Simulated assay, not measured.
Amino acid sequence: MLPEHEALLIFTREQFPELDGTPCDVEVILKGASDRHFYRLNWQVGREPMILMVYTLARRDNPKFVPATHRLRKIGAHVPQVYAFDEQRLCVWLEDLGRIDLQSFNEHPWDRRFPLYQATLREAAKFHGVQESTLTPADVEELEPGFDEALYEWEQNYFLEHFVGGYLGRDCSGPEFATARETLRQLRRRLARLPRCLVHRDFQSQNVLIRGEDAWLVDYQGLRLGRAEYDLASLLYDPYVNLSMEERASLLSYYADHRALGLQDLREVFYLCAAQRLMQALGAYANLSRNLGKPHYEQHIPAAVFNLAEVCEEGQGLHELRAFFAGGL
């Protein structure tokens, strides 16, 4: 066993003295782009596996995972139980939700996938139902900074710097991009004026685990105030999976019915958020693949560009954004 794994087991047995002497296999879980490390502790006798998350303070949202877990469990959302938390060693021991995520059903027939997406949307509705007006200042302080015009602008600049400039090699500061830049400004201003609720922030298929027919959530440490449609766009325009326009429409309709929302109004804001989310994703894929030593993220760029092109056609006032990426791949 590797020395670092032996150290992790020492820490674990300090938290759970009853496991002292119980043999354990440490399995490294390789997934995601964050600076957190995950291990599955497979106890050989008398104990279900558990997950050990070891994080750093390099990202400001990492320490928010435990309070976000407690908040989500209070409203009945499906999230793992926290067995133990060592704040000094930056370790969290968690319930093992299994190995099957929503993305793994990508090649299954739609009649198999549809109920899993419905279950996922029902989970989202639980925290989307928590409106900003119901939260205290202390509640808000516990969350990550909410979506406002400044954060939307940061995401847009991330897209311009890393994807448009870095990946496509385009200088978009010239007059030929003036209309597209104004479209970005109008987009962030429109979104920032809308009421906010709790959102996951990274609500995509790899962050949804499937147990039976139920959906369970992970990687929600970015919980904050924002628009529900941003989460919906993250899921329904997820570049990691294939969804047709008809399938997206069915899921959006299901969500509207589940929450008793007007579908037309939901669709309008959904496309605005989809453009914003996909630009953020393209900035991330370009930055991760070009600058952070994770070249496998580049494979998701064509799907994200295809989705963004569709959104620019379907959404109101978004067509000019195509100038940033048209003909670029």
Rank of each mutant, 00 (worst) to 15 (best):
E6G: 11
V164L: 07
V45K: 15
L198S: 10
E107L: 14
R322Q: 15
F38P: 02
L19Y: 01
L94R: 10
I75M: 13
F16C: 09
H300D: 15
Y297T: 04
S205Q: 06
E14T: 14
R112P: 07
F159P: 01
A323P: 04
G21T: 00
E142H: 10
A124Q: 13
D111M: 14
A274G: 05
F163E: 04
R40D: 07
E18A: 07
H37K: 14
H319K: 15
C172I: 04
E153V: 09
G174K: 13
L160S: 07
P80L: 05
K74R: 10
Y117G: 10
V241Y: 00
F127G: 07
Q81A: 12
N291C: 02
L329D: 10
P49I: 03
R71F: 11
P239H: 07
Y83H: 11
W216H: 14
G76K: 11
R60Y: 12
Y158F: 12
P302R: 12
S253T: 02
K294L: 01
G46C: 10
L198N: 08
R267S: 06
T179K: 15
T22H: 01
F203Y: 15
A58I: 11
W93Y: 13
F16P: 06
F16D: 07
S250R: 03
T22P: 00
G283I: 07
R40K: 15
N62D: 12
L217P: 02
S250L: 03
P137M: 14
N287L: 06
D238Y: 03
L121M: 13
G283V: 05
G262V: 00
P3R: 14
G327I: 11
A304G: 12
G32P: 02
N287T: 01
H319T: 07
L217H: 03
D238C: 02
A58T: 14
D219S: 01
A256Y: 02
S133E: 13
D20T: 09
L209N: 04
G165V: 04
I75F: 10
Y255S: 00
F203I: 09
G328H: 15
R112E: 15
H37D: 05
G328C: 15
G226W: 06
A286F: 15
A215W: 03
E182V: 07
V45C: 11
N242K: 12
N207K: 08
P295D: 01
F163L: 04
D20K: 05
R13N: 12
Y255D: 01
E229F: 02
G262E: 02
G46T: 11
A228S: 13
R40E: 03
G169W: 10
C273D: 06
V305I: 15
G166H: 08
G129N: 08
M53V: 04
A125H: 12
F38N: 06
R122T: 09
N42V: 04
P175H: 09
L321I: 03
E268Q: 09
R59K: 15
I301H: 09
V305Y: 07
Y237F: 15
H37E: 13
A180R: 08
P49F: 06
L121S: 11
W154S: 03
E14P: 01
R267N: 00
D20W: 00
V199D: 05
A58G: 09
R13L: 06
